[in-house]
Deep mutational scan, measured.
Amino acid sequence: DHDVVPEDKFQETLHLKEKEGCPQAFHALLSWLLTQDSTAILDFWRVLFKDYNLERYGRLQPILDSFPKDVDLSQPRKGRKPPAVPKALVPPPRLPTKRKASEEARAAAPAALTPRGTASPGSQLKAKPPKKPESSAEQQRLPLGNGIQTMSASVQRAVAMSSGDVPGARGAVEGILIQQVFESGGSKKCIQVGGEFYTPSKFEDSGSGKNKARSSSGPKPLVRAKGAQGAAPGGGEARLGQQGSVPAPLALPSDPQLHQKNEDECAVCRDGGELICCDGCPRAFHLACLSPPLREIPSGTWRCSSCLQATVQEVQPRAEEPRPQEPPVETPLPPGLRSAGEEVRGPPGEPLAGMDTTLVYKHLPAPPSAAPLPGLDSSALHPLLCVGPEGQQNLAPGARCGVCGDGTDVLRCTHCAAAFHWRCHFPAGTSRPGTGLRCRSCSGDVTPAPVEGVLAPSPARLAPGPAKDDTASHEPALHRDDLESLLSEHTFDGILQWAIQSMARPAAPFPS
């Protein structure tokens, strides 16, 4: 592969990997390779389809078979030569091979799209000592099968071997295949498990690692696999990028399955594409389908809103127990993405979901129960707010008499603000006073009005108090039968009158 990737590009890729991570280095090298001529790309395919690569990765054979028959990708048995050289000459001794072996032994695996480039050397060096003999053996194999790289107009793939297949390693990572398949204008990513390549439709969760975000852009890794992070704060999961590491605690105790298979379609829109997988259930989501939507993949363990709600429900009964003089119970939860139609709101002032922060849900004790107040519409209280300059209440639009249902020339009671006709409430011909108009209920007259088809109010509507207090003497005590009587009149003013009279009014101040 030294004929494909020059030394300066190799060093530039290593520097970019240390600065921005393996995914960015892979993407940059792939983009550079696509700008080369067809001879360089053909050399790339020839390096990929060597015999030892085909033996190690069985899924490469179907890719090789898909090439046109007129494309010669065979390799000479006596060494490598550029395709432009007409004579089959043995190339001179390859010093770059020693360079590659020494550099890969030092860096474990470079971040390139060629056999030198995919593992994360920093994480491997940190986690190597417990498994040094086995990992050293794996390093000797890295130059042979560490990076199976493929690129063409139909298929483009980048393979990364790992030393996680050490025997006896619980939940060992089998390997990473960062794979971009450009077929019919689409893009897919796969993962390699035990020599087999699994596409998103049959993606397997190998051991402790999972394909957290099938994305090839942005600074985030394709698999949430930063070796420096180790395990999740809650004892979460091992990262795919942690090559040759000792077994780590796999999943939280509440995880239903340690080796679950995540779905390959969004649980909201039932469509495929780039998904984020939940650590607590097999569901996966688009970032845009979450509520609120996320802009980037959160670091650490992530769970959907259903799993978060289940966790909150487990903690909430203990938080609601009476604990005198104790601060509110704080339950730190990872930043969760909410699927459509589901929402768990945190306290005000918290950062938005999706940031690399930890939301704190506070379970406050329930407030003391209070008697429910009568629910009145805002339009129902409008007549009470229509007060004239002299303190006389004006008529609201649409006000109707509670007896006849007519809204023409209605009066407004100064005591309960109900609309009424003087002739309907006082049919006996009582003279109307000039000021202080009161309806039949507030004036103490319980004589029913002779209106055909309208039920008369119940005599129990009024329960006047002592006459010594004029204001308190007109406080009506309405009961269920009074409400039914008012409802039978089918008037809004009657219902409003009952609601206003049912509310307690402050006692009249004593004259000074």
Rank of each mutant, 00 (worst) to 15 (best):
Gly241Leu: 10
Gln242Gly: 08
Gln243Thr: 12
Gln243Ile: 15
Ser245Glu: 07
Ser245His: 13
Val246Asp: 01
Val246Arg: 10
Pro249Arg: 08
Leu250Ser: 10
Pro253Glu: 10
Pro253Phe: 15
Pro256Asn: 02
Gln257His: 10
Leu258Thr: 06
Leu258Asn: 02
Gln260Tyr: 09
Asp264Trp: 06
Glu265Ile: 10
Cys266Trp: 06
Ala267Glu: 08
Ala267Trp: 13
Val268Pro: 06
Cys269Gln: 06
Asp271Phe: 02
Gly272Met: 06
Gly272Ile: 00
Gly273Leu: 04
Glu274Phe: 03
Leu275Gln: 14
Ile276Lys: 04
Cys278Ala: 11
Asp279Phe: 07
Gly280Lys: 06
Gly280Val: 13
Cys281Gln: 04
Ala284Leu: 10
Leu287Asn: 09
Leu287Gly: 08
Ala288Ile: 14
Ala288Met: 15
Cys289Ser: 14
Leu290Val: 13
Ser291Asn: 11
Pro293Phe: 15
Leu294Trp: 15
Leu294Lys: 05
Glu296Ser: 11
Ile297Ala: 07
Pro298Val: 13
Ser299Pro: 05
Ser299Arg: 10
Ser299Asp: 06
Gly300Pro: 05
Gly300Cys: 12
Thr301Asp: 03
Trp302Tyr: 07
Trp302Ser: 13
Cys304His: 15
Ser305Leu: 10
Ser305Tyr: 11
Gln309Thr: 05
Ala310Trp: 15
Thr311Lys: 12
Val312Thr: 13
Val312Ser: 09
Gln316Asp: 10
Pro317Ser: 09
Pro317Asp: 11
Arg318Gly: 10
Glu320Ala: 11
Glu320Cys: 13
Glu321Leu: 11
Glu321Gln: 09
Pro322Ile: 10
Pro324Asp: 08
Val329Asp: 14
Glu330Lys: 11
Pro332Met: 15
Leu333Gly: 05
Pro335Ser: 13
Pro335Asn: 15
Leu337His: 09
Gly341Thr: 09
Gly341Leu: 14
Glu342Thr: 07
Glu343Tyr: 06
Pro347Gly: 07
Pro348Asp: 06
Gly349Ile: 06
Glu350His: 08
Glu350Val: 12
Gly354Ala: 13
Asp356Cys: 08
Thr357Cys: 04
Thr357Pro: 08
Thr358Glu: 05
Val360Trp: 15
His363Ile: 12
His363Pro: 10
Leu364Ile: 04
Leu364Met: 02
Pro365Arg: 09
Ala366Cys: 12
Pro368Ser: 13
Ala370Ser: 06
Pro372Lys: 10
Leu373Arg: 10
Pro374Arg: 07
Gly375Cys: 10
Gly375His: 14
Leu376Ile: 12
Leu376Asn: 04
His382Arg: 07
His382Met: 00
Pro383His: 01
Leu385Ala: 11
Cys386Gly: 09
Val387Ser: 11
Gly388Met: 09
Pro389Phe: 07
Glu390Gly: 14
Gly391Glu: 06
Gly391Pro: 13
Gly391Cys: 14
Gly391Gln: 15
Gln393Tyr: 15
Leu395Trp: 14
Leu395Ile: 13
Ala396Ile: 12
Gly398Met: 07
Arg400Tyr: 03
Arg400Met: 07
Arg400Glu: 14
Cys401His: 02
Cys401Gln: 03
Cys401Leu: 03
Gly402Val: 08
Gly402Lys: 13
Gly402Trp: 09
Val403Met: 05
Cys404Phe: 03
Cys404Ser: 04
Leu411Trp: 04
Thr414Gln: 07
Thr414Trp: 14
Thr414Val: 12
His415Ile: 05
Cys416Ile: 01
Phe420Asn: 03
Phe420Glu: 00
His421Asp: 03
His421Leu: 01
Trp422Ala: 11
Trp422Lys: 05
Arg423Lys: 02
His425Glu: 06
Phe426Val: 05
Phe426Thr: 05
Pro427Tyr: 04
Pro427Met: 12
Pro427Phe: 10
Gly429Val: 10
Thr430Asp: 15
Thr430Tyr: 04
Thr435Ser: 09
Gly436Arg: 09
Gly436Met: 12
Arg438Gly: 06
Arg440Lys: 06
Arg440Trp: 09
Arg440Ile: 08
Ser441Asp: 14
Asp445Ile: 11
Asp445Ser: 07
Asp445Gly: 08
Thr447Cys: 12
Ala449Pro: 15
Pro450Cys: 14
Gly453Tyr: 06
Gly453Arg: 09
Pro457Ile: 12
Ser458Val: 08
Pro459Ala: 06
Ala460Ile: 10
Pro464Phe: 10
Gly465His: 14
Gly465Tyr: 13
Pro466Trp: 14
Ala467Val: 10
Asp469Tyr: 14
Asp470Tyr: 12
Ser473Pro: 11
Ser473Lys: 04
Ser473Glu: 06
Ser473Cys: 14
Glu475Tyr: 09
Pro476Cys: 03
Leu478Trp: 10
Arg480Tyr: 13
Arg480Asp: 09
Asp481Ala: 03
Asp482Ile: 02
Leu483Trp: 04
Leu483Asn: 03
Glu484Ala: 01
Ser485Ile: 08
Leu487Phe: 07
Leu487Val: 04
Ser488Cys: 03
Thr491Ser: 15
Gly494Trp: 08
Ile495Trp: 10
Gln497Ile: 02
Gln497Met: 01
Gln501Arg: 02
Ser502Leu: 02
Met503Arg: 01
Met503Ala: 02
Pro506Trp: 06
Pro506Cys: 03
